[in-house]
Amino acid sequence: MRYLLPLFIIPFFCLDVLAQQQAALVSNREIVKKEDSTTEILDFRVLPLFGEIKKNQEQQKKDDVFLKNCDENFKDRTEASKFFAERGWEYIGEGQLDTAVYRFNLSYLLNPQNMEAYWGLGVVSFQKGKFEESAKLLSHGLKLDPNNAMLMVDIATVQMNCFVEKRNCEEIDDAVRLLEKSVKLDSTNANAWLKFAVAEYHQEHFDKSWEYIHKCRMLDLSFVDLNFVQQLIAKKEDPMGIFK
């Protein structure tokens, strides 16, 4: 089961505080790595795509054993890759993000062309606040499945968060282009219309934002983010008078 990426409109005055908190956590993690060799091994396994580093002979042997076991227990490596990706999504749902990364890494090891592996890793990176890394992984997944409308929405969500936090992972225009393509491929996706409304809000196109909020509402009211609606009302009242 996949999990939709949330979108938070973070006030700019909060960003410095968040950055300081994240820096402190990173510092603590580095100390643990130096003191605990077990953590170093674990970190290697839970880095997206195994950290994209060249594996040593011992690590390669472990991979070979794993692949051999999968060959003996699955119809083929494509099926095995799908199995581990599904486990990865389950662990995301349980909040076990590092375990999810390891499962998606195994999925990638079995089949580097499995889009789900990159998608799952991108979602975990997003949830960890690593937006640049998330955008890179999700975009790679889209190259493997270029007409995946849901994945386009997730990439646009990451790009909008980058825009809000002024990070270097694409511009708001790129998010808008992806959302335009996504709703052309699937105009019934309420989540896509919600994210489209947010993108227009960030560009101060408030009429368009209201138009897309109402498209979202008509498709599935449960997707309407009332916190966002209140922020939009503060900029311009609902032309249809439904939200007050």
Rank of each mutant, 00 (worst) to 15 (best):
V198F: 07
P48S: 01
Q231T: 03
F126C: 07
K68W: 12
H202F: 12
F83N: 05
K61D: 08
Y3N: 08
M150D: 12
P11I: 04
T188K: 08
M160D: 01
L4M: 10
Q21T: 06
A24I: 09
Q21Y: 06
G122E: 11
N148A: 07
E30W: 05
K62M: 11
S182M: 08
R177F: 06
V183E: 03
I53G: 01
L178W: 04
Y118I: 01
G241V: 12
E52A: 13
E116D: 12
S134C: 08
A197I: 05
Q231C: 03
D173G: 00
Q60E: 13
V158T: 13
Q96H: 13
D154W: 04
E132A: 09
Y201A: 02
S209A: 15
F12G: 00
F131T: 05
L110N: 06
T157I: 04
K184Y: 04
A80S: 13
V153D: 03
E52H: 14
D16E: 15
P11N: 01
A100Y: 05
L221W: 03
S209G: 07
D207T: 11
L49T: 01
S222W: 03
K128S: 03
M160I: 12
C14F: 13
A190Q: 05
F243Y: 15
F8R: 11
L5F: 08
L137C: 13
E204K: 13
D36L: 02
V229M: 09
L138F: 07
T39W: 14
S222C: 03
E170T: 06
K55E: 12
E94K: 15
K166N: 10
D145N: 15
